[in-house]
Structures are given as C-alpha cells and as structure tokens.
Design a binder for these strands. Structure first.
Lengths: 327, 327
DNA sequence: AACCCTTATACTCAATATCAGTATAATAGG
DNA sequence: CCTATTATACTGATATTGAGTATAAGGGTT
C-alpha cells in the first residue's frame, strides 16, 4: 500500500480508481417534530425506516442535496438542519464488495397534517425507545428492562466482568444510587445491543429468534442501523437544547410558555421545574410578548410569546440554558 | 427522479448504479498535539496539507480505517479519535463529473520527535490562524485584521448591509463592546473568506492575485479546504474541553497542574485564572497525586499528578468544567 | 546568611446562578 | 359563588463562579 499519510508529495486527494471500489453515498434524514407533547420522527410507513435517498452529482453539497429533496417531497419547511454522523461499517450491508457511505442529517420541523398523503408517517420516538421516557416517572416497561439486564449481568463469564456489567448498567440506567442522565441515549442502546436484548443484535448472526434470550426489551426495531441513527439524533438533540436555542424550530410562531416547556420535556424525556424554566427563558430574553393571549389553556389565559429571532444574530453561538440536573 | 424520501417501499438503501456516479471517499486526519505551549497539527511537509488517504473496502469502518493507517504510519498512539465532519461540496475539486466525499477525523496525541523522519511535520495551528491566539492579549497582527475588516465594511453596497457587516465583525472579533469568544473559530474564518481577506477565497474564481483586496490577513493558507477543516477542528476542541475530559489525551502520563493549565490555554487561545483552574480540577477529582514532585519549574517544586482514568468509566459523559467566560 | 525572584498552594469574599417551594391572579364550569 | 385549573410572581437556602490575597518552598545572588 502506498503511504498516503506521510509519504505522499503528490496531491493528497488521490482519487482511487472507480473500478476498484464500488462506493455509493446515501443521505439519511432524521426529521423531528413535536406534536401534542410527543417527539416524533418521520418514517416510511410500515417499514420502520428513516427516509433516505442517494447523494447525486447534481447536488451542490450534501446539505443542499438533503434540503432539496426533503422540502420538495414533504412540503415541510426544514428550518434547521445539521449533519449528524457518517456511517460506513462493513456489516451494515450484506455485500462484501459493495460499500455504502451513509451521511445522516438531523432536521427540525413542525409536523403537518398532509404528510399522510405520502407514504410516510410521524411516529413517536418513544415507540422505538420506550425506556427513554421518564416524564411520568419510571416507565412501565422498566421491569422487563431490569430483568433483562439482570440476566445479562448474571451471564457474565467471571466475577470481574459481572461487576463491570453491573456498574455500567447502573450508571447508564440510573439504578442503585445513580441519577438518570437523559443524554446517554446512544450508550444505553449500545448496551442493550451488546446484551442482545433488542432484535437488531441477532441479525446476520446465524442466530434465529429461537436462540434469542428470554425476552426482548419492548420497543420497535428499525431496518439496518436506523434505530442507532435515531439514538444518535436523540442524544444530540437532548444535549443541544441545553446550550443552543433550537427548540424554537419545533414551535409554532406563537406559543405559551407552558407549551414551550412541554416541548422541551418531550425531547428531554423528563419534567422540569416550572417557575425556574420560566425565569430562565425570560431572563435570557429568548422570547417576546406578542400582546395576545391564548384561551385554550383550561385555566387562566396564557400570554402568547414569539421567539426573538434576533438572538440568533446576537449570540451566534452563545447559549440557551435549560434547567436540568445533568448527572 | 424517483421519490426516495416518501414514495419508496423498496429497501430504502437503494444503491445507485456505480457507473452513473463516480464517487470516491477520502479520510482526512486532523491530528493535534500540544508541545511546549503550542497547539500543533500534523501536516504534510511543504504542502500545508492535512494527511489524507483513501477509504478502502478492506477497512472495517471509517474510524478503524483512519486509526489503522495513522498508527501504522506515524507510530503515534492515537488515544482519542472522533469524527469531525463530512464534506462533499462541488467546488472542492475541479472536476464536475467527479465527486469526492471527505470524512474528516479529529485525533489527539502526544507529539513524538521521530515524526521528522517521515515527510510530515508538526506546525503550530496559530501559523494558520494568528488571530486566534489571545494569550498575550491582542495579537500584533490585529491591526492588519482591523483595517481589512474596515475596508470590507466600507465596501458594502448599502447602509443596511454596512451596518450588518459591522455588527457581525464586531461580534465575531470582539470589537466595540463585545467580548472575545474563542469558540467562534469557524465563523471568523468564514467571514474572512467572504471578505476575501484570505487567499483561498480567490481560488477558481478567475480572479488573479492582482485583483485581490489591498492586503491579505496574515496566516498561512492550506490546500483545498483544509484550513476550513482545521478551523472546524479547533472550534470543536475548544468547545469540548469545557465539558469533557479530553485534555488529558494531550498530556504526558504525569504532569503538574500548571502544565495542564498551559495546555488548556494553548488550545483555548486565552489565559485562565490560576486559583480557579486548580480548584475546578481538584474538586472534580480528575487527577490524583503521584507523590512525586517536579523540580523543573524554576520555583517551588510542583506536585506531579496523573489523570484518574476511572473518571471515564464513572461519568461516561458527564463533564469536566473549565473556567471560561464563554461570551 | 540575608535577600530576591519564581512558582506552588491555600484561603477569602462578593456576585451570581440554581434549586425548590409558596403565594396570588385570572379564567371556565358547576 | 365556589372550585378546579392554569398562569404568573415572589422568596429563601444553597451551590457555583469570578477575582483577589496570603503563605510556602525552592534556586540563585550578593
């Protein structure tokens, strides 16, 4: 092999002969919206798959390629898009002489009713990750989860491994004296994968469902590694809302503070302290009063606010802070 | 065009015919080390280029591909590697029917002397971004920078644009009453690019050096968009050291607290308050005393510490906090 | 030995942010 | 008119942060 790292004095971007490598590139879209207290992702109906399309030469850039076809085909205004991750693991596809590079993007929108006219649908992301919703305390599926984890821990070959597994499970799932940290979505998914508590772990393994462990943890699987991509996106979003004002991409033009709070809680999967939440939002001058009120609250009418778009310019990067314990 | 986003019911990972698209994939490595108070990047000698190599079918995954050839060819222990960004802009290469997807990675190591035996060398990243070093106050090149910005602002076609430009420059470069925010590396680079104050901006433009603005801002250019990748990496690292204990990947096994502080300051490009820095490090129990001391300090001998690797397990994600104003 | 220079390390204090709880206001419905 | 419900405004304890000061322990100099 030539030594591209240090020896090359020729142009470093040496292009491998196209015949030698069969590489294709895919764009995968993780579109998120929050509707009636539910964080939802756009999926291809009956497939449990994220929408994806080929990256083509016609596209000016990766992001513009993604933006173009998402907006054209869903009619949704994709306000915020960011690159999520690029995958190219060999075991993602069956073929050994074929390689697909998948570049995933995270987009934030508002759900629109018409999406049903396409063969796509919005699904709550907690359908795929029921253990991630701690808004109503410990989810009911927690028992299955715990016993699954206990089995995995018990199945360790030796004492040291067993102890490590116990510690890791406790830390990630907030057992024993650990606090629940809502950002560890991907690590939790990876542990469950390792513990073979989710169906994806048995694929292409020669293993049939019969050789599976006693019971899978509840939660719908997705094709290929799409559920992993979703976990990556949830983790990213949960981290990001704490220091950048991205929640507003998911809100309608005007909203009450409680609606905003519910949206944040939906994403984070846990509840926040109301008075503190309001203080934080108002102190940072993220919103401005519209003068109008909403009567649809069931109690005292709530002021309607609007996002002060100016903050995006004022603090290109500086932060929104949201009240979370954060481990 | 088929509608891959919502209409497809066939496997979503449809592979585009290999003949139709000529797509190749490259891995680009941004390797960082901090030596004698200087944050350095590995470059290919005399080329001002980041090392890069083709992604091959033999590689198990993107990261393992990168790891493999970096470690084999530099002999460096690449402790920490993370994916940085994936680029595929059309104007990155000359050819219109050829497309290269570049997946860049950020790696942290310790510089080793032998690297000179290869045709690679470590360069201070402030050679490429002199305006990013605020450790000794305002850098001396600031005057050139300011006058360049002033010209760009004055050249605005109308009053509104002029006002926007002024605001943006002030915010990004800490002028007027704005504070310097060390994380905005990429945004500053992009502004300078737009303002055509750096040579890369004139490439492939038909423009010759003669039509350039009065003077470029100091700082070495790099090939293609490598300087942009470097800016992305610096920004990422400056943000990351604040909430994750990655600095230690750049430190020797044992070190004094001042050495650690100097390393952080080198990365951040600004100084931190010594007593508070120490308090933060010790409070979080990131380090442990080795019992030994270092006499090479010039004053009172300093205790030697070692990173408590256990924290990586304890708090998979939870944070290191470092004292910065942060805008 | 006395002194100065340098760096290490410990402590203090005020300002600020955060967490958690409580009180009051304004609507709808019975 | 009472009650349930939600909105909104305060309050106090506690932790975190920013900035400054004091003392300790070496080496070198006169």
């Amino acid at each position: 092999m030539s030594d591209p790292l240090v020896k090359s004095t020729a142009p470093v971007h040496s292009v491998a002969p196209a015949s030698a490598q069969a590489i294709a590139a895919d764009l995968i879209a993780l579109l998120v919206a929050v509707t009636s207290g539910d964080p939802r992702v756009l999926t291809i109906q009956d497939q449990n798959a994220l929408p994806s399309g080929p990256f083509e030469l016609a596209h000016r850039s990766l992001q513009s390629g993604l933006r173009a076809w998402v907006e054209r085909q869903t009619g949704l205004p994709v306000g915020y898009v960011e690159q999520l991750y690029t995958f190219a693991d060999r075991d993602r596809t069956g073929a050994a002489d074929q390689r697909i590079i998948s570049i995933s993007y995270l987009g934030l929108t508002r759900e629109q009713a018409e999406s049903s006219q396409y063969e796509a649908s919005w699904r709550s992301w907690y359908d795929y990750f029921p253990w991630e919703d701690h808004r109503l305390g410990i989810p009911t599926m927690e028992k299955t989860l715990r016993s699954g984890l206990a089995e995995w821990i018990a199945a360790a070959p030796d004492r040291t491994t067993r102890s490590h597994r116990r510690q890791r499970a406790a830390r990630l799932f907030g057992l024993e004296d650990h606090l629940w940290n809502e950002e560890l979505v991907l690590q939790r998914y990876e542990l469950l994968y390792e513990a073979r508590l989710i169906p994806e772990a048995l694929r292409g393994d020669g293993a049939t469902l019969e050789t599976a462990v006693a019971a899978f943890v509840p939660g719908d699987p997705m094709i290929l590694d799409h559920r992993r991509i979703l976990a990556t996106g949830i983790a990213r979003l949960r981290a990001k809302i704490k220091y950048r004002p991205v929640v507003f991409e998911l809100m309608p033009d005007t909203f009450t503070l409680l609606q905003l709070q519910r949206c944040v809680e939906a994403l984070a999967g846990k509840l926040v302290h109301k008075p503190n939440f309001r203080r934080l939002i108002e102190q940072q001058e993220l919103v401005e009063d519209t003068g109008e009120t909403s009567q649809e609250t069931g109690g005292r009418p709530a002021k309607l606010f609007r996002f002060r778009r100016a903050v995006l310019a004022e603090r290109a990067i500086a932060g929104t802070k949201l009240p979370f314990s954060g481990a």
